[in-house]
Amino acid sequence: MTFHHTSRIALLFAIAFATTALSVTPSLAFSSEAQQMCTGDAMRLCGHEVPNVQRITACMVRQRANLSPGCRAVMERGHAARRRAAAAE
């Protein structure tokens, strides 16, 4: 399946947003690591939602169990950071 340039941008934005939703560290969400680790998963698992960023984001969160190990690790690090910050409040 071929995605248009605009769709790829929407997909990358959704990956960053999904990671941000689970993170208190925006730099992690927008890191090249997050994009590198999660773009393939987003296309494979949630490509049918492109270009709707909110739906891609929701799909990535729902599909957490089906993510590749690298993408899951990036998202789980963000989630762990959010839990630590909430516990410190």
Rank of each mutant, 00 (worst) to 15 (best):
P51C: 14
C46Y: 03
V50Y: 06
A16L: 05
G70Y: 08
A16R: 04
G70D: 07
C71D: 02
Q36V: 06
R8K: 08
A58G: 10
A87Y: 05
S32G: 15
A14D: 05
C59W: 01
S32N: 15
S7D: 11
R55Q: 15
A10C: 13
P26F: 08
R44L: 12
R83T: 04
A10Q: 09
R84N: 10
C71P: 01
F17Q: 07
A42K: 06
R55A: 12
C46R: 01
E49N: 06
A29D: 04
H48K: 11
A10P: 06
R55K: 15
A86F: 11
T20D: 05
P69E: 14
S23R: 02
R82I: 12
S7H: 08
L12T: 08
A10K: 05
Q35E: 12
A10S: 14
I15H: 02
L12P: 04
A18E: 04
I9N: 14
A85Q: 14
L22C: 14
L22M: 15
R82P: 07
A88W: 08
G47K: 01
F3N: 03
Q36D: 11
A34P: 02
E33G: 13
R44N: 12
V24T: 05
A34T: 10
Q36M: 10
A18Q: 04
C46D: 04
S31F: 14
H4S: 04
Q54S: 15
F3V: 00
Q54V: 15
T6K: 13
H5Q: 05
E89M: 15
R83D: 05
P69I: 11
S68L: 07
I15A: 05
S32Y: 14
A81R: 07
F13L: 15
A18V: 03
R44Y: 10
F17K: 08
A58V: 00
P69Q: 13
A21F: 08
A16Q: 04
L22W: 09
T19L: 08
L22S: 11
Q35C: 09
S23W: 05
R44G: 08
Q63K: 06
T25P: 00
E76N: 05
M37T: 00
F30T: 12
V24D: 03
C38R: 02
T2A: 00
A58I: 06
C46I: 04
N52A: 14
P51H: 10
T2C: 00
S23L: 07
R62P: 00
A29H: 04
G47T: 07
R72K: 10
F30Y: 13
A14L: 09
Q54D: 15
C71R: 00
H5Y: 07
Q35W: 10
S68Q: 09
Q63H: 06
H48V: 09
L67G: 03
A86S: 10
T2P: 02
C71N: 00
F13R: 13
E76F: 03
H5S: 08
L67Y: 02
V24K: 02
Q35G: 10
M1C: 03
A16H: 02
F3P: 00
P51T: 11
G70T: 04
H5T: 06
H48Y: 12
A85N: 14
L45K: 01
A14Y: 01
A65Y: 10
R72F: 12
A73Y: 12
